[in-house]
Every structure is written in structure tokens, then in C-alpha cells.
């Protein structure tokens, strides 16, 4: 899997994404800045593309970081309760502050995502039975519990509709002014790149990391903060996108191995390609309507994950 092929694919899919939609826009329309087409393009299409690119990169990298830190291929924001914790955080902020401001939602969601992931990592430390399959099972269940708490409070406070909206990852609502939070992932990605080697080392275990002079606790916590930041920004702007952080890094690792510094660019770009492809499928199938992205990714992602599970057993033996 060569990087430039992925990049070319991303560029092609991006241009398809830009010119696909209920309003037919041709490149010549854009020359006239005052036309309706150009306005739609700048207010809706470009923000949407940027959102997909940032979310795709972000979620994939978040998954990659979690997998190196836990040394488990199947740990990701979907399978460690991170996304569910972020959702719970949004709900709590809405409960405490009537009509919580965006900033309040961000802070709560981030705090919960961070704490939620930390708690899971703590549970991991206590489990002696570190089976590759066992850990994500616990993680999924943990996410289910967090999610049922969210639904419970949502029911009691008549917020179920809002929560359902959060559940549905959806790019169709992305317009100018509603996605800029995602730019947070850019510095996060840069930090992730700088620290890539240290994440790999930290994943080898505390003793190993200390031996190589890596500040284990610091790197571990940094990794979790980055993951929580990405998850929060994605959940708040787009909604939940399941499986992305799980399957993209795994697909890359099948071809490129597990050296983070080497696989990070591939993972980021493949995340973009995958999400763009899913988004385009969702927009084409019932054109001019749209299928929310989390459904498309949910169907394709879970199917790919199942295949990976069976294949993983095939080559593990």
C-alpha cells in the first residue's frame, strides 16, 4: 500500500465529494463568487469536505494511538467507551446548564471522554487475562453501560431526541460555522506525529519504556488526552462514527507493520479515503436524500471488522 496511491485516491474522492449534491455545481460556477452555486460551495461543500478529512484522520489516528498504548489491536474509541463517555459528557452539560453553551459542552464532553478512557485503561491494568479478544469485549460492554446511563437521563429529562441526534453521525448538517472545532485535530495530529516513536515505545510496557529513557506516565497520559480531544471534537461536530479508529489502523498494520512513525501517514490518509468513500456512498444511494454517515460506516465497518476477526484467527494460528 503506497502512500501516493492513497493520496491520489483521497484527492479524486475529494473532488467527487465537492461536486456531489442536490444542487448541481460545475467548476465554472465557482468563478462567479456571487452565484448561489458558489455560495453553497463555500458554505456547505467545502466545510463538509474539510470536516470529513479532519474527522477521518482524527479518528484513525486516535485508534492507532490507543492500539499502540494498550498493545491490543482491537482497542479503539469505539471499543473502549471513549465515544460513549463523550456523549455522556454532552448530556451532563445539557442537564446542568439549561441550553449549555458550545464551550460548556466541549469542556464536559472532553472531560468525560478523558476520564472514561482513563477508567477503561485502569480496568485494563487490573485484568490479568490479556486476551486480544477479551479486552475489546470488556470495552464494548463498558461503552454499553455508559450509553445506557446516557439514555436513562435523556429519557428522564426529555432529551432523547437530542441524544438521538448525537448518536447519528451525520455530515449533512455540517455548514460553515458548525465544524471549525475540528481544526483542533490539526495540532493534535502534529503532536501525535512528533510523539509517534514514544507511543510505540510506551506500548512495550513501563519497564521497557523507562529503560529507553521515555517518560512512560507522561507519554501515556499525553496519548489519552490526544485521543479524548479528537473524540470530543468529532462527536460534537459530526456525531458518533463507529469502527473507523478500529479498522483503519488494522488494515494499515496488515500491510505496513506496527511502527507508528512509519504507519501514521498511511493511517491518516486511509482514514480519509475510507470516510470519504462511505460518505459518497451514503449520498448516492438514495439521492437526493442522504444516509447518515454512522450507518454507512456502521454497516461497512462492522462487516470489515468481522472479516478481520476471522482472518486474524487464520493467520494467528
Amino acid at each position: 500500500m503506497r502512500l501516493w496511491i492513497l493520496i491520489v485516491a483521497a484527492v479524486i474522492l475529494s473532488s467527487i465529494s465537492l461536486f456531489l449534491g442536490a444542487t448541481n455545481i460545475t467548476p465554472t460556477d465557482l468563478l462567479d463568487f456571487s452565484s448561489d452555486e458558489a455560495e453553497i460551495f463555500y458554505i456547505s461543500r467545502i466545510p463538509r469536505l474539510v470536516a470529513i478529512i479532519l474527522a477521518g484522520m482524527g479518528m484513525s489516528i486516535a485508534g492507532l494511538i490507543m492500539q499502540s498504548l494498550s498493545r491490543n489491536k482491537f482497542v479503539s474509541p469505539t471499543t473502549a467507551g471513549t465515544l460513549d463517555a463523550a456523549k455522556l459528557g454532552i448530556l451532563i452539560s445539557m442537564l446542568f446548564f439549561a441550553g449549555a453553551s458550545y464551550t460548556q459542552q466541549i469542556i464536559f464532553s472532553f472531560a468525560f471522554a478523558l476520564i472514561g478512557t482513563l477508567v477503561f485503561m485502569q480496568i485494563l491494568n487490573r485484568i490479568k487475562f490479556k486476551d486480544a479478544i477479551f479486552i475489546p469485549l470488556i470495552g464494548i460492554m463498558y461503552g454499553n453501560i455508559l450509553s445506557s446511563i446516557t439514555v436513562f437521563f435523556a429519557y428522564e429529562n426529555d432529551l432523547l431526541q437530542n441524544i438521538d441526534a448525537w448518536l447519528m453521525g451525520d455530515f449533512s448538517l455540517i455548514i460553515k460555522g458548525r465544524y471549525e472545532l475540528l481544526y483542533v485535530s490539526i495540532p493534535v495530529l502534529i503532536i501525535a506525529y512528533i510523539y509517534a516513536n514514544r507511543f510505540t515505545v510506551a506500548g512495550m510496557g513501563e519497564d521497557f519504556a523507562k529503560n529507553l529513557g521515555v517518560r512512560y506516565k507522561f507519554v501515556l497520559n499525553l496519548g489519552l488526552v490526544l485521543v479524548a480531544l479528537i473524540s470530543t471534537t468529532v462527536v460534537l461536530t459530526v456525531g458518533v462514527i463507529p469502527f473507523l479508529g478500529l479498522i483503519v489502523p488494522n488494515l494499515v498494520s496488515i500491510f505496513k507493520g506496527d511502527n507508528l512513525a512509519k504507519t501514521l501517514p498511511h493511517t491518516a490518509v486511509l482514514g480519509v479515503v475510507f470516510l470519504l468513500a462511505c460518505d459518497i456512498i451514503g449520498r448516492v444511494i438514495i439521492y437526493p436524500y442522504e444516509i447518515p454517515i454512522n450507518l454507512t460506516v456502521g454497516v461497512i465497518g462492522s462487516a470489515i471488522f468481522l472479516i478481520m476477526l476471522f482472518r486474524g484467527r487464520a493467520y494467528a494460528k
Binding site: F74, F134, L137, I140, V299, S302, F305, L306, L309, R313
Partner: peptide, 17 residues
């Protein structure tokens, strides 16, 4: 545990579908 994970993901797949 493998069957369990497969079952859960299968449930997610069918639910999303």
C-alpha cells in the same frame, strides 16, 4: 470470547443494516 465478540459485532452489523 471470539464467538462472543463475533456475536456482538454481528448484532451491530444487523442493527445498522
Amino acid at each position: 470470547y471470539f464467538l462472543l465478540l463475533v456475536g456482538m459485532i454481528l448484532g451491530t452489523l444487523l442493527g445498522s443494516a
